[in-house]
């Protein structure tokens, strides 16, 4: 594939958004590849982390958006810890996920669904309610019967509870965060 390069691409709005959201300077990267060398999930990625950064540098927005790499990133921060140019790569991946989520352009559906359900569970019970999370995830990812055989076995051995064990809800905290997000000029401007 041939890409067209110019001032427009180099100063793309997408790159600027990522830079502001992650508070990182994408042009600092000199492509040494240390992030990719240590990435524990690199073998599953369509583009290695350094290449995602390179694509950001050259304004290849669509390719970054289509890539599964940011969604596979486990935020283990190995890359962040090792980057010689002190770029927080994990945070850059996070920024890409946020933008994709807001613009509804995520290339994978399941991972954002899981993230949402996980957070909901935390919001209401203060911890993860396994049966609820598994059930809801399987339902929304259109595979409702997936874990039923194993689920029954675990239930019989007393490993799963049908009712959530509440550790006190965190609704107050989530509310404050949402309000803060709303007030924030950054997200206003960007998202």
């Amino acid at each position: 594939m041939r890409i067209v390069l110019g001032k427009e691409q180099i100063e793309s709005a997408f790159k600027k958004k990522v830079e502001i959201l992650s508070n990182q300077r994408i042009l600092s990267c000199y492509q040494c590849g240390k992030c990719s060398a240590g990435c524990p999930i690199g073998y599953e990625m369509d583009y290695l982390p350094n290449k995602i950064i390179r694509m950001l540098q050259l304004g290849m927005t669509d390719d970054v958006m289509k890539s599964k790499t940011p969604w596979l990133c486990a935020s283990c921060q190995t890359c962040t810890t090792r980057c010689p140019r002190e770029i927080d790569v994990a945070r850059v991946m996070d920024a890409i996920r946020i933008i994709a989520q807001v613009e509804n352009r995520s290339p994978v559906k399941e991972i954002p669904i899981f993230n949402q359900i996980f957070l909901k569970s935390v919001e209401f019970t203060g911890r993860v309610f396994e049966v609820g999370v598994i059930g809801a995830y399987n339902f929304f990812s259109l595979n409702p019967f997936k874990d039923i055989p194993l689920g029954i076995k675990m239930f019989l051995k007393g490993k799963l509870s049908l009712m959530p064990h509440s550790a006190g809800n965190l609704r107050g905290l989530f509310k404050r965060v949402r309000e803060k997000e709303k007030r924030s000029a950054v997200s206003d401007q960007l998202l």
């Binding site: 041939r2 694509m55 050259l58 290849m60």
Partner: peptide
Amino acid sequence: VDTLSGQQVEIK
């Protein structure tokens, strides 16, 4: 070409 991204490039 930009071999780091593996893309052929075109610049006006």
